[in-house]
Every structure is written in C-alpha cells, then in structure tokens.
Design a protein around this nucleic acid. Structure first.
Lengths: 113, 113
DNA sequence: AAGGTAGTTCGTTTTTTTACGAATAATTTT
DNA sequence: AAAATTATTCGTAAAAAAACGAACTACCTT
C-alpha cells in the first residue's frame, strides 16, 4: 500500500493559498476597490480595471475560491464584498508568518554577513 | 505618440510581487527553514524538501529576486538567509494592506448580507 | 414573446510556472 | 593533476495562469 506522505504542513499550504490569491496586481486592485466601497458590482469594477469582462470574472473566481471575497448573486447582477472572517484569518496567518521570521525572534540576527 | 498608462499603482504591484514570492508551499517551507536556523546552506534545505536540487535553486532564485532572501555565495557552497530589511518591509506592506481592508475601517460592515 | 441587461462559462491561444536530469562551474580534497 | 563536492544553469516537458471574444444564462422590460 502506498503511503501518501504529506509534503508540506497545513499551515504552509494555507499561507501559499492566500498569498497566491493576492499574487496578481489586478486582484490586489479588486480588493482595494471592494474595501473602499464596502462592496460593489462586477460592472463597477469592470469600469475601473483594464481587463476584459470575462477576465475579471476569472479573477473574482480565484478570490472567491480562496475565500477572501463573497458574491451576492442576484441575476443579472452580482454584488461582491470582502469576506470579513476569512480575510481576518488570512491577515493573522500571514502576519504571524512574517513576524515570526524577523530577526528579533531568531537566535542570531543578520546571520548572513 | 503612445502613452503607456500605468495599469496599477506601485503599491499594488509590490504587494503582488511579495505575495507571489510566497505563493508556493515550498517557498513558504524554505522561509520557515531559514528562519528556524537563522541561515542555512542549499544542501541543508535540499535534505528537508521533497524536490530536486535544480528545482530548489529555481525557488531560491524567485525568493532572491523578490528580495526576501540573500545568498552568501562561496563555491562550492552557498549560504542563504532572510533579508531582514526587505522582509520587514514586505511584512508591513502586506499587514497594512490587509488591516486597511477590515470592516472596522470600512464605512459599513458586513456589507454583503 | 422579444429584446435588453449584467455576468458567467466555454473554447482557445499565449505566457508563465514548476519540475527534472544532464551539463557546467568553482572550489577542495586526494 | 585528477577526482570529489556543491550548487547553478541549460534544455526540455508538462501543467497552470492569464487573457480574450463568443456563446450562454437568468432575470427585467417592453
């Protein structure tokens, strides 16, 4: 029987997942838009962003799949907003990741010089 | 004359850049390793990670290009460590990005429901 | 019932990412 | 000088991401 050894920790996978969601400038811009207006329609965003409608839908899907946003679908309109809980979770996860690696928390500092 | 309109802000590009650097679990694992030991050689990491040597080099290059790590090359060995300044900068950039979007700082909260 | 509106999905192309082994470079050891 | 060690670069293949227009869905108006 083949044992599927897990390659990375759950936490590492999650960090990569959330990071990947914001690893494209247009998705960063989308989140900026959503935050500045509390929420908005696909069409509102489409006006501000230099991409085709279908491409926007794809990026929204990436953010939605990662859990960072949610869509209130109400044909023919869809209103998007930030998913507060997950967003806060991702914020803390990434913040901890970065902070935990800074010099003050390492044995030595400026190790490479 | 063609005017190259910039599509995204400098900040949005930077956020995406740093996020992209940690958008793969192996790169998250690399940073975890570097942080836990202050620094280490390519070979040390190669033992811990389930990827080929050449693939590891590639991922190290991505992290180095993003500025998150630096390499002390000293053939045939190379010692890597976290780039403290840039790392701290990235931490703050991402932290601000996320925190600035949370409900308390928006006009309304739970906008989508 | 036709037509309009707003988004999504589909099909396709192009580009980028990830991965590996083989070949290469730069020391150190024998 | 030859061989060993350690890591990078090269060449290539496979997979994933990004982009677009066309086709489609699901309501709302007329």
């Amino acid at each position: 029987m083949i044992v599927e050894t897990k390659k990375y920790t759950e936490k590492q996978e999650l960090i990569a997942l959330y990071a990947n969601a914001i690893a494209h400038p247009v998705r960063v811009a989308i989140l900026d838009l959503l935050a500045s207006q509390a929420c908005c329609y696909h069409g509102d965003m489409a006006e501000e962003l230099p991409i085709a409608n279908s491409t926007l839908s794809q990026h929204l899907k990436v953010l939605k799949d990662a859990g960072l946003i949610q869509g209130d679908i109400n044909p023919p309109k869809t209103k998007y907003c930030i998913h507060q809980e997950n967003y806060a979770f991702a914020e803390e996860l990434l913040s901890d990741f970065f902070k935990g690696h800074l010099a003050s928390s390492c044995g030595e500092k400026g190790s490479c010089n």
